[in-house]
Design a binder for these strands. Sequence first.
DNA 1: GTCTATAGAAAGATAGAC
DNA 2: GTCTATCTTTCTATAGAC
Lengths: 195, 195
Amino acid sequence: MPWPTEQKQMTRERILGSAVKLFSARGFDNVTINNVMRDAQLTHGAFYAHFKSKHELYAGAITAATKNSILAKAQEEEGCENLNVTNLIAAYLDIDHVQQKTPPCPLAFLATDVANREEEVRLAYTKVYKDLITILNKQLNHLPSRKGRILALSALMIGGVAISRALYDEQVVMDLLGACRKYGEELLDEGDVEA
Amino acid sequence: MPWPTEQKQMTRERILGSAVKLFSARGFDNVTINNVMRDAQLTHGAFYAHFKSKHELYAGAITAATKNSILAKAQEEEGCENLNVTNLIAAYLDIDHVQQKTPPCPLAFLATDVANREEEVRLAYTKVYKDLITILNKQLNHLPSRKGRILALSALMIGGVAISRALYDEQVVMDLLGACRKYGEELLDEGDVEA
DNA sequence: GTCTATAGAAAGATAGAC
DNA sequence: GTCTATCTTTCTATAGAC
């Protein structure tokens, strides 16, 4: 590709990093272009030299979020497969993830926020989701009924975090996260017997 | 309570009905007060005779949504307990629910939308969530490890529907919903042996 | 209680200087 | 490419007549 200067690429990535952080925390409509650009230490006029629209930024942020997220870590690790997934489940369904103290996964943080947007955004979300399924598939290639179990596990993980972020009751959140971790793992252990 | 005229109550409920429908479909920020009032066949000036603010309407809609939802049906039914939950799981994780052809459950449709709002809204969401857990608890009072299994099941159901609404791939959606139904029920069947 | 009209604020996008 | 300034639209909330 005939690519722009290295400086521009770096600026673009700084904007995307700010966008990931802010959109995950507050959703599409509660973040302004000004918010993002200020966080990236620029003024809002400079935005349109990098992105066509706010929606394009949003779709880009969803894709970019995976680069530093919990999922990326799991993707890198090879071997010792079942343990990797156990670690992923534990890190994903951790209160630190819910509170965005670790890099947020857009699948959980933006699920219903994405549902109402146009194709471009939903396609970005779908791609990230399929990547998660692919990761789990590779790590769990010994598991019987693999496909169904992995899909159910993904709903358990994403749902657990999404609900936890909405609830206003600390104790229930801790109970919910714990239960999702426990029965998420059980979903994998019981693969010995085919249903 | 010294209550308003019957006519006013009915109007208020018509507004709430429109709010449930529209907020569930599009989220808080993509619905205007004008949209809601037009749907309720009024003009937007009349809104503030019924609600203090848009946020109050939103919180009210989350609470009101349960009155006609899938959850309400499950709550009414007595006896034949395990079957009721099986029916609830099937109806909740149905493509018709995802496409809002049956009354939408705000727990799934508004999960990440609620996370970013103030206390009043999150408390309404938390109340509805606890009601769901209570329903499941009553219907499944024979189940061992009941508490944890029910929490995990709730995440599976809500997560399955929330993700399905975001995805832009029909086949993946159908696979996901099917897997959530299957392993959601498995979560209940395997209660015979304590883990 | 409902209407029409409008105040007031916010934010996406663009223009033009440097 | 980045800046400041502004255009333009949209929307919440209020005012005041009926």
